[in-house]
Structure formats: C-alpha cells, structure tokens
Design a protein around this nucleic acid. Sequence first.
DNA 1: GTCGCTCAGTTCATTTGTTGAACTGAGTCG
DNA 2: CGACTCAGTTCAACAAATGAACTGAGCGAC
Lengths: 167, 167
Amino acid sequence: MTSSRSRLRETDHVRRTRFDDWPCPIARTTDLIGDWWTPLVMRQAFLGARRFEDFASELDAPRATLTQRLDRLVDEGMLRRQPYQERPVRHEYRLTPKGRAFWDVLAAMWRFGDDWLWHDDDQSPAPGSPVELSDRATGDRIDPLVVDANTGEPLDVRALRVRLTRD
Amino acid sequence: MTSSRSRLRETDHVRRTRFDDWPCPIARTTDLIGDWWTPLVMRQAFLGARRFEDFASELDAPRATLTQRLDRLVDEGMLRRQPYQERPVRHEYRLTPKGRAFWDVLAAMWRFGDDWLWHDDDQSPAPGSPVELSDRATGDRIDPLVVDANTGEPLDVRALRVRLTRD
DNA sequence: GTCGCTCAGTTCATTTGTTGAACTGAGTCG
DNA sequence: CGACTCAGTTCAACAAATGAACTGAGCGAC
C-alpha cells in the first residue's frame, strides 16, 4: 500500500480524539507530535538519520510504528521522501523547511528535560543530562532559551494573556 | 484509590515503550508529555484551570483519561494537589515551579503551530491562528522565540552538534 | 427527609493503538 | 545458488483511549 495517502477523516468509529482542527496552535502541535515516538523520530532526523534502517536501528522502535510515523510526517510536510537509488527504488527521509522549523520545539524540550528531568527529588532545577548541545563550527556550548522576540526577555508566565483575534 | 501512588515499574507484560530512563533530555520530555491530552492539560493549567471540573469541561476529555493524566502530572511534580475544602475533601491542581518552567515548551509549540499549522499547502510559514499571546499588564503582543542564551541569537539548525559529556 | 444538584471521580465494554517477532520481496555480492 | 541488505508488511497479543453510565459525599430547598 502506498504511503502518503490522504489521511482518513470521516469515520463512524470512535477514534482517539484529534486536535488538528482546534483553533489553538498548541493543540495542533500536540496532535502532530503526540503520537508515541514521533518527537524522537524528528530528533534522529536532526542528528542525521535519513534511511528507514537508520531510524529503526538508532531508535529500536517497532518497524510498523516507525512506518506509520514516517508516513505521517511526510503527509504533514515535515519530512520529504527522496529517491536515492533505482532498482530497487529506495528513498531517504529528509527534513523540509517546516521540519527544520520544528527544531525550536525540540530545543525547548531539550532545555526543559535538561533542567528538570535528571533528579528524583526535583524541587529545584539542576542540569544533569550526559549530553550537551554545541555549535559545530565554534564548539561553543548552546543553551536553548525561549524569549519574547519583541523584547528579547525570557517569558514571564504570570504576565501571560491569551487574546482572541478573530472568529 | 489514592492518586499519587508510585508508578508501576516492574511488569512482565509488554507495555508501551518508555523513554523516561533514556540519557537524552528530549526523550525524557517526550515520555512526560507524549501521552495524549497531557500538553493540553498543562495548557489549561496555564490558562487558569484548577479543579477537575475545569479541566473536564474546558477540554471535554474523557474523565478516566483526565484522572490518569492529572495523577501522573502530580507524580512528576508538574502539578500539586492542594485541598481547598473539607467535607468533602476537595483538591485543586496547581502548577509547581517545575510545571511553570514547562511553559517554555508550550510557547515553542505555540510558535511552531502558529507559523506552520494553519494552511493546507504549507511551503512557507504564514501565521494564522485566531489567538495571540500578550502581556497581561502592557497588552503588548508576545512572540515566543527560541534563542541560544549565550548569544541571544536564534538557533541555527545546521550548525548543530550533540556532545557526550560523560558516561 | 428526600429530591435535585455539584464535584470528583470510578467502572466497564468497546474500539484503537503499540509491540515484537516473523515474514516478504527486490536486488546485490561472491 | 545462497547469504545478505534494505524497506517495509503481517499478525496476534496486549495496552491505552473512549463514552456512557454510575458512585458517593455533601449541600440547599422544599
């Protein structure tokens, strides 16, 4: 069966609730990456994985699940399927601009995980993961941080408001 | 049955693969928020939801699922369960510092969703969600952006490297 | 004092999603 | 020919999500 077929929308069964039509950017992103394994598939793509076997061996994910995730990411325009040989036809999964833009989300997850998910009693932040991000050219360490693009300041959760702009 | 009981670890059944022990901040964060509904539960918490009925009615999530998600978020230290009345004892779910730190991840998801998930043909970014973030006090619009804390510059995906710092 | 109401869940049968292991099929190498 | 690679597919067993109904403590009105 061909991958990249259009996603099933109409159904008379009860399926897992979808968020991809909700009028909220967080909900739609959740729908996209809420599938188990999907953020890790994207992580591998950023780390250089291109072929099915790359993803399969590096993640040790069930092959059927992996097929399904890669198909969806292609459907969504995060990855693109590019032939790298004929006879037999084989493809690579490459990041698209949209897929590349997703790195910011993974970077924020990286920062959160690094700050908060390395201790059993976590009353305070304490970085501790055994990996770090750096610049390929300079070697300088990179610490992802989410700021307001308008001010350059870190976000202040308590000063937050959500505004409906239309509809 | 009490919530906040320690999570089941040992099992002889085949369960969904867990990532919470992986030596990667993205994997651990994925494990935490990869459960369907969880990012939206956190979103509601940031928008002011506190009681079970708030989450249930605002999200229209299955109540059993919601119970399970809230229990886990409490277990993980993202939310804390605080009594707000006796007779009968009732609790509110409040954000902890760790939970509050998670806003950065949601903000990055917000930005990505706003930029990329509002058009059917998405070759280029085009903001379009019907909601926007603003500062409660000044009213100024807020545009989340992920930067490198050391330079203040947006992340350059292509210049990325991951370094093992130990073990 | 019992009827209706609220809140915070629990229970349960059904359906959907994930897993692991084995299998397929085109093609290459020796 | 036989072993091997790559990229999947198939399938049965099991885990997780769903929706609807139910529970149970307590309140407030009549």
